[in-house]
Design a protein around this nucleic acid. Structure first.
Lengths: 202, 202
DNA sequence: GTCTATAACGTGATAGAC
DNA sequence: GTCTATCACGTTATAGAC
């Protein structure tokens, strides 16, 4: 969004990101992207050859940006397990605030093409070789937290962070909150989620 | 899925449900639906006039089925607040097990057309006039649970239930679990979520 | 009601001038 | 590199026979 739009190529790619994120691959039209970029439709094919190739590029950058951005946090050897939880929650919420369409976009597109998209990014190793998971195991062993499946823990943690964004239209309709009020509620969760997570683990 | 396929009209509608739920409106082709129903493409238009009209019908039934199915649970005056939490979690997980594509389908389509779709179902009143929310407020007042936003509570509760289904492809890739193992994990959550939720409220 | 054949339209992609 | 004009194709929708 706030990337450099210096070259025409970047303008198109950033426009494609915005449109794909908002509408998904199938519903996005190359004409939408061209219009959003303020260029002609033919230029899109000149630079990226096809809608599909452009999409793959966008997807790779989106996935690596989304999953890579927190690898610093979860691999910091200086912070404790609890500190990582706090930083992870706050960091991810800030990240998604900047691009709120990404979680639903990723989930939808992966559903349509799981094997192809997931092999583009080695998320499994990122998680399982992290300092974070080692500290989780240590905390369990030391009896600091309840013995439980790491996967349950991750589902809960990520779900608490991400679900309000995925369910936003629905949750706004239920609550009747304005955009600002709803965002303020999510902002509160940066502090609340770590508290909840710790309560769940005892 | 397991509905009566007696009439041709029902065959088409059930096929449409399956295809729309799996691929979303934009990616679903009327040919896919006709093939899934085992009928000719022209019949689809004969019965439902257009893809869009068929979609709206499917969406209305999906939404009312999804949100209506639990209104019995949350409005039962015989059960306590805690019992409702247990029944709601187990009931919803069973429901989604039967049609696992629905949560992501609903979220995706509502994103594309929030106002139009949400006015078709009065979910706001269903929630706010429920026995469930009254019991929540009473529990807060009596000091049984921590004073907190009902919306946070709902986000957490629904998120814990629904997120594993929405994030399934991703979570399976991260964990390396098979379909059966993953489903077993979710099955465990029927018992675990009420425990976690209670821990979060104290 | 159900089918085949085809019309009408939208969208991705390219040719060719500048 | 960038544009206009157009092609090629897939998809929705309909006409018309049975």
């Amino acid at each position: 969004m706030e990337l450099k739009d210096s070259s025409t190529e970047d303008k198109i790619k950033n426009a494609a990101k915005a449109v794909f994120h908002r509408k998904g691959f199938a519903a996005a039209r190359t004409r939408d992207i061209a219009e959003e970029a303020g260029i002609n439709l033919a230029l899109l094919n000149y630079y990226f050859r096809s809608k599909e190739r452009l999409f793959v590029l966008v997807m790779i950058e989106t996935l690596s940006g989304f999953f890579g951005s927190v690898s610093v946090i979860i691999n910091n050897p200086e912070t404790t397990f609890e500190e990582k939880i706090e930083q992870f929650a706050a960091g991810y919420i800030d990240l998604i605030f900047r691009e709120p369409d990404i979680p639903l976009f990723i989930m939808s597109e992966i559903r349509n093409n799981p094997e192809q998209l997931l092999q583009k990014i080695d998320i499994r190793n990122t998680v399982f070789n992290s300092v974070f998971i080692r500290q989780f195991a240590e905390s369990v062993q030391q009896g600091k937290i309840k013995d439980q499946s790491f996967l349950h823990f991750m589902m809960n943690f990520i779900g608490l962070i991400v679900f309000p964004f995925i369910g936003k239209p629905l949750l706004k309709a239920i609550s009747g909150l304005t955009e600002e009020e709803f965002n303020a509620l999510i902002e509160e969760r940066k502090k609340l989620i770590p508290v909840w997570i710790k309560a769940m683990m005892n």
